[in-house]
Design a binder for these strands. Sequence first.
DNA 1: CGGATGATTGAGAAGTCTCAACCGTGGTGG
DNA 2: CCACCACGGTTGAGACTTCTCAATCATCCG
Lengths: 250, 250
Amino acid sequence: MQRFVTKLLLRSQLSGEEQEAILRLNCRATQVRARTDIVSPGETVDHACLVAQGLVARFDQMLDGDRQITSFYIPGDMADLHSVVSPAAAWGITALSPATVVHVPHKELLEVARAYPAIMLAFWRDTVADGSVLAKWVGNLGRQDARARLAHVLCEIGIRMELAGLGTRTAFELDATQDQLADALGLTAVHVNRTLQRLRAERAVMTRGHVVEVLDWPRLADIAEFDPDFLLLGKTDCALLPGTRATSQR
Amino acid sequence: MQRFVTKLLLRSQLSGEEQEAILRLNCRATQVRARTDIVSPGETVDHACLVAQGLVARFDQMLDGDRQITSFYIPGDMADLHSVVSPAAAWGITALSPATVVHVPHKELLEVARAYPAIMLAFWRDTVADGSVLAKWVGNLGRQDARARLAHVLCEIGIRMELAGLGTRTAFELDATQDQLADALGLTAVHVNRTLQRLRAERAVMTRGHVVEVLDWPRLADIAEFDPDFLLLGKTDCALLPGTRATSQR
DNA sequence: CGGATGATTGAGAAGTCTCAACCGTGGTGG
DNA sequence: CCACCACGGTTGAGACTTCTCAATCATCCG
């Protein structure tokens, strides 16, 4: 839960009291095995899923069963904070690796959001950041080839891992199979394999097991046309209109 | 502005007073010609853009100048409501057709959101719906071929036009060139052209100028694997926690 | 009538997919 | 302790979708 607060603080200002309020939320941790669906497509949920450990993904499922991963979630991410305002899921959430997921009731989240407008803004901003990543993925899928797409996802995860304190942008664990990567990149596993080999041959990245080592970050970023702006990391203070914080207290 | 309120009401409950408050927002309308960028990539804005007329798009731009359209916005849509909580744009907004755009200052939007929590929730929910469409586009681009992608966008726009009162799902005006459609579908104009011909040959759609006529909605929806759930049209009442509305008044 | 823009067509090239086989490694049961 | 199995990674060859480039056509407008 602390990780979640830390992540919110990347983009929003929250007072100590507000942070406390979030930390005090009731929730229940569960373990799931790799390849378990945490939320099935079409399900209506009454809680959001905070990733505490492992790699989790949101996906869209086609009629033939093919999946497209639309976002990755790493520890500290609330995988479906958006479900708070829209509990009928058009998506699914699945664990790509063994994972620990903390269920936080919508009711709790809404209460704390209602009591503290700054928190509601922080939640809102968090879902907007999620959407911004999605928009970047659309660009990535629509206008970049396999090599750039793979490079981009590696850059994105690298930065996010680093921000989450789970490694550095040039060395982190990405606990996904090439199959799963393919589902995220809109490719086949075979092509992901060949593309990864290409990036290795270019001495841009190396992998050992599921550990990714970026040998040449500038080159990888260049291949990806990576610009971290889309992660919306600027800490905006628009929450702090005169009065906002004050009103939240009463 | 009325259109915007109507659109919010599709997904959120708002009291008369709340609706009034939105209608009273200060704003300034501007006309833009087709192919004008309303917000350039990287710009920081202090207002959101409400589409009053015409077709507007959000896009991501590659280094070679290629663009990927990530969302279409039709009259009644706030094209960058997300900018309210994240004013540093990683995206651009452009007019695909001649358009009337209403600029609404962030300051005004934040004030009304702060005064009425139900409005903040409605705004939040609106951006979540925007993100949900993006997620669907990711699925569409990643796992569907050109024919399904085109069909899906036509279905989406059809439904949205109908909801906005700008036509029916089977007959509406889509004021975009095949070039622009290609930028949205991650294809080339040539291939959009051939794909559209195929849909016409299948008697699924017909076009006259920029008017799209869906000859066989079930077939088109079938080709697209279209399921309107991703538009998040259920009107959720989670806004109405005991007290939410009441607190909003004082 | 001339020019611009957008739609259409054709042909060859490139990127990615499919299918099928093979390899390497870690875990498991005998 | 070893043989085996399952899973994920790797390789090869041919097929298919989509792209590229270039030309042509149609429509609108000055």
